[in-house]
């Protein structure tokens, strides 16, 4: 474990908690893409199946359980409890255009052709594009609540910190995982446009509205 991966995990945890609290406290999921949240729940489910097969550390297990729990709770709030506040008309990204190619790629490019490894690879590829429905929805509504932008900032920051973690591990441990690194670079690049708006607008106290 290194400081970059730890702060990355905490940033990821912060994002997940911020979103869950925002929806729970405001009793509304307006502006939130339910599709992205379903994709994240799928990412955690397919990546953390090893909860059932191996124990790595208390930290590892605890974080995985929290991630899965919070992501399913968020999906539950959006599609069941607070369904009336779900803005389905703007959450129209065709997720099948993500899942099918990602699923195919996981079969073609992976470290080991075993079920757990294919599912892990699927989750890595899927996570890199899972935010697209949310970014697409913001471009359609033309704006985002400030709390939602903080959620997106920490979510984007977490994988950027993981990129530094992989540089660190390559240099000090001779470790590198091309699949995770390439997917992580793609994932972080998708946030660049948002990061620019976040820094130039939200951090100056303005509302995030598009076109910029």
């Amino acid at each position: 474990m290194n400081i970059f991966r730890l702060t990355g995990d905490l940033s990821h945890l912060a994002a997940i908690i911020i979103l869950l609290l925002k929806i729970w406290k405001s009793r509304s999921c307006a502006g939130i893409s339910g599709k992205s949240q379903v994709l994240f729940a799928l990412v955690f489910t397919t990546r953390y199946l090893d909860l059932l097969t191996s124990f790595i550390s208390l930290y590892n297990t605890t974080m995985k359980v929290i991630y899965i729990g919070c992501s399913y709770a968020t999906v539950y709030l959006i599609y069941m409890k607070l369904k009336a506040t779900y803005d389905g008309n703007h959450d129209t990204f065709r997720v099948e255009f993500l899942i099918v190619p990602v699923g195919g790629l996981a079969f073609l490019v992976n470290h080991d052709f075993s079920p757990l490894e294919i599912l892990w690879t699927f989750s890595i590829y899927l996570e890199s594009v899972a935010i697209l429905p949310q970014l697409f929805m913001i471009s359609k509504t033309g704006e985002a609540e400030t709390i939602t932008t903080h959620y997106l900032f920490f979510l984007g920051l977490y994988r950027a910190l993981y990129l530094i973690n992989w540089i660190w591990r390559f240099y000090f441990e001779g470790f590198f995982d091309m699949i995770a690194i390439v997917a992580g670079v793609v994932q972080t690049i998708l946030y660049c446009d948002f990061f620019y708006l976040y820094v130039t607008k939200v951090l100056k106290g303005k509302k995030l509205s598009l076109p910029a």
Partner: peptide, 10 residues
């Protein structure tokens, strides 16, 4: 350096 899947990463 051989690529290896990170088992310890979230």
């Amino acid at each position: 350096r051989t690529p290896v899947r990170a088992k310890d990463e979230l």
